[in-house]
Amino acid sequence: MNLFRLAGDMSHLFSIVLILLKIYTSKSCAGLSMKTQELYTLVFVTRYLDLFYSYVSLYNTVMKLIFLASSFGILWYMRYHKQVKQTYDREQDTFRHYILVVPCAVLALIVNNELSVTEVLWTFSIYLEAVAILPQLVLLQRTKNVDNLTGQYIFFLGAYRALYILNWIYRYWTEPKYRQYLVWAAGLVQTGLYADFFYYYLKSWQAGEKLRLP
């Protein structure tokens, strides 16, 4: 494993820690999209089905379990915690799941490496992950009230993807058989979705202000 990959994974992990920290310390999930969290949970569940039939490394297994457990944990807080669930922006978080889930499922059935249940589900998770941040970005645009932790959460999620792209470039040059066009295309789309957010995030940061969206 190279440094870009490790840094990317740590950035991903850190973004999740931030979100749990925010919820736990402030007992609030204001500004967080439950739709995005549900989509990420679906991403992890469909992708990490391989926990049952393949083993790569202890590191991978542990990380997969952490991602699964933490995404269910976040959802549990947002849905069932007495104080936290009251802070959820239900009226603003109106993005419909099927707008993303259905096209990703159709695309996974058409464009995949192999037409098998596990492979299509894995491909579906790759496509869905690329766009799962959209409800969160829409919510951010609507509420315009971005607290520091939410801003940092999205920043680290974007950084995770950008670091994975560096990891892919590195592996492309160092591992002769490393080709994964489908994943690369989805990863580029995913990173691209953050471009706009990054721009405003860095601008606010430079100005030493809280993140403000136009």
């Binding site: 991903h12 490394s57 991978n60 990380m63 991602f67 192999e114 994975y164 058989k177 490393y178 080709r179």
Partner: peptide, 10 residues
């Protein structure tokens, strides 16, 4: 096929 071993990423 060589795509299987690329499942080593998260």
């Amino acid at each position: 096929e060589d795509f299987i071993d690329l499942k080593d990423e998260l």
